[in-house]
């Protein structure tokens, strides 16, 4: 027998359940006074560099009904394409930008809104530039393991056309599921959990 590889197994995921707000956005969930603010609620301040944009995201189930108990986290580069992370070795990110945000879907409408900036381009492993994008992570009751996808921008057609991740989508009719439509200074993005328009989710 060969030597054993002493690796551990990742802890298995379990659903965030219907009461995820208690843990991750307690002020929104009606539990005040424990944390001063909900983590990730604000990504910007007056000095943040970059174009201000809004994101209006909904998550729809297999019947087209918006989830009203989901939670979305986003992770994105700053205006120059740098991440605010110890693993970012290319340069210093904008100290006035969080790069990370967290918002619940509205309990009535299912709408989830972020105020952020348009991210810069980030290089792929081989040095080519990826198109501007925002990474999404979605949890909710009924979702057994957090869903990972990306939001790309409808007004970046040229960059999108050369994006190495979008290029890997075999069924080209599915590419638009990752592209948010610009409306004024906001982008509209519907995430379809299943059905004809099912969003491309990632295993990365």
């Amino acid at each position: 027998m060969a030597q054993s590889l002493t690796r551990l197994k990742e802890s298995p995921s379990q659903t965030a359940g219907p009461y995820v707000h208690i843990g991750l956005t307690p002020n929104f969930g009606g539990i005040g006074g424990v944390y001063p603010t909900d983590l990730g609620a604000t990504m910007l301040n007056d000095k943040t560099k970059g174009e201000r944009i809004g994101l209006r995201i909904r998550v729809l189930d297999g019947t087209g009904t918006p989830l009203r108990d989901a939670l979305i986290e986003i992770w994105q580069a700053d205006a120059n394409g740098f991440y605010n992370s110890p693993a970012e070795l290319r340069g210093d990110a904008d100290p006035d930008f969080q790069c990370w945000g967290r918002q619940p879907t509205d309990m009535e409408t299912g709408l989830c809104s972020f105020q952020t900036i348009k991210p810069g381009r980030v290089p792929f492993g081989d040095g080519r530039l990826m198109a501007p994008h925002i990474s999404l992570w979605i949890v909710a009751r009924g979702i057994n393991i957090g869903l990972h996808t990306r939001l790309y921008f409808s007004d970046e057609a040229r960059a999108n056309a050369e994006d190495p991740i979008l290029a890997r989508i075999e069924h080209r009719v599915r590419v638009p599921t990752l592209i948010a439509e610009r409306q004024g200074d906001a982008y509209i993005f519907d995430v379809h959990l299943q059905g004809e328009k099912e969003t491309v989710f990632f295993d990365s």
Partner: peptide, 16 residues
């Protein structure tokens, strides 16, 4: 009704 049914898109991690 909340489970994706299509195959996930697999790729090695990028900086993102």
């Amino acid at each position: 009704l909340r489970s994706p049914q299509k195959a996930l898109l697999a790729f090695d991690n990028t900086a993102s």
